[in-house]
Simulated assay, not measured.
Amino acid sequence: MSVRIDITGLTPDRIHVVPSPLNELGMALHALSEPGHHPGLQGWATAVSARLDPCLADRMCEADFLWRSTFSDVFAPFAGLPGRNALPGETLAEELDQLDRLTDEQFVDAALEFTCQSTNGEPDRNILADPAVQQRALDLAAARGPHQVRFTRRLLDDPPAVRTWLRGLLQDCDEAFFADTWARLSHQLAADARHKTELLRRKGLGEALKSISGVVSLDESVRRITIDKITDGHTATGHGGLVLMPTSLGWPHLMVLHRKGWQALITYPVSAPGLAAPPTVEQLTRRMAALAHPVRMRLCRHLARGSYTTGELADAHGMTAPEISRHLTVLKKAELITTRRRGRYVQHQLDISVVSRLGSDFIEGVLR
């Protein structure tokens, strides 16, 4: 699974690395509503939440589905402007003006992302004039709850009013907490953008993408960017541009805007704890499948405590050496165990540094 961007015909002058205050505000709202996604920001989220005006906090809850479970493309309005080559504004006010320049159809379509009603690859249609499409949106919203249904009705009945309400909410969030946060983060994001721009100029797009993340790659032979994600999607730059956007609050999210008719955008975190090269989806699949077997779970419990030979594990688990060997092969292919030779003995041990990245619950389980 992956998201692919066809960049046939894309010239270097149409590739830009630029931060966005509106996008970062969206990331801030997401981190506040889902602090579990961002353990490194829990101190910041707690401090901001503690000083929030209760009325503003209630208003933020009214539309938090725009940034909690999904990240709405309304936070990148520049990508929907005609020509597909606009850039985000330097200030939040400029980007909110760009939000006002989207058509009602674009605004509603992007805001309805939370219903999982994706139109990224579907034929052109007019949501505001098609009763069947509107009813489908309401049915999908109903699965999320009555609050979302009310919002969807307002959105379909009066898009300008909802857009005005959302703009006012974002401006109040800026005044309440985001302006200070942006003042602190903007220098880091600007520095990263300059570095990536220089990398583009000196070494080309492939190296710049590699510096963003190990899961982003460029196939020059077919002029295609591939982003390894547990989702499928595709878009093309066409006559438009490609924007690479750094975020400081977004880790671990690497997001790709591939909405039909919008400019391609990759939002990447500038700081990420852990290893520089994250595992591919294929590696994750192998690791989760390897750990799903009860025998291999029990082997991991042994191997987390020390290094053992195949014979020792066979004796401990009442199995034959060939049976143990087969399970060890699966764990080794998943890169979950290390092997070393000591004289005529081969010892195996769980690689805690790799397993820990899969989750602390598993580590606690095998070490309990």
Rank of each mutant, 00 (worst) to 15 (best):
R357V: 11
S2W: 07
L350K: 10
G241F: 09
E323D: 09
H253E: 07
L242F: 06
V366C: 06
R305Y: 06
H38N: 12
A47G: 05
A191W: 06
K260H: 15
L81S: 01
C300V: 05
W262C: 05
T197S: 15
E198I: 06
R286Y: 10
K333L: 11
R298G: 05
W262M: 08
V149P: 05
A142L: 04
S248L: 14
G83H: 00
Y308T: 06
A289C: 05
P246L: 06
S211W: 05
G274E: 05
H187F: 12
P131W: 04
I7D: 05
V133R: 12
H258T: 04
P322C: 00
G233K: 09
D232F: 14
L41F: 00
D158F: 11
S325V: 01
Q134I: 05
D130I: 02
G145C: 10
A45V: 15
A110P: 01
L336I: 12
F177E: 01
A292K: 08
V108D: 11
E175V: 09
R223D: 11
R305P: 07
C173P: 04
G274K: 07
L291H: 13
T46M: 08
D180P: 02
W44C: 00
P131Q: 02
Q347A: 12
D351F: 04
T339W: 02
K196Y: 02
H30W: 03
I7C: 05
L66F: 08
V149K: 05
S248M: 12
A93G: 03
G26E: 00
D157C: 08
W262T: 02
G240L: 04
P39A: 08
L336C: 11
S118Y: 15
E220Q: 12
G83N: 01
K260F: 12
D192H: 15
T329R: 13
R301Y: 04
E62L: 10
N23D: 10
L205Q: 07
M245Q: 14
R342D: 09
G238Q: 07
L52V: 08
Q347F: 13
K210H: 14
P160C: 12
A276P: 15
D130Y: 01
W165Y: 15
A264G: 02
W44R: 11
G238M: 04
G318L: 03
S49C: 02
L52Q: 05
A290D: 08
D180Q: 14
L170A: 06
G83Y: 00
D232M: 12
V3H: 13
A143R: 09
E323F: 09
A176G: 07
V243L: 15
T247H: 10
S325T: 14
R201M: 11
V216H: 07
V354I: 14
E34A: 10
D232R: 14
K203S: 15
G365N: 06
V162S: 01
V215L: 14
R368N: 12
L10A: 00
D232P: 02
A57H: 08
T339F: 01
R144T: 06
P35D: 05
S186V: 13
D73V: 01
P77M: 06
A183T: 06
H30Y: 00
T247G: 15
A272N: 05
S49T: 11
Q171S: 11
Q106D: 13
E94Q: 07
F362D: 03
R194F: 09
D172C: 10
M245A: 07
L328E: 00
V3I: 15
D6C: 01
V162K: 00
T320L: 06
L156E: 10
E312K: 14
S307I: 03
L328F: 02
G359D: 09
R154H: 12
E335G: 03
V162A: 01
V330F: 02
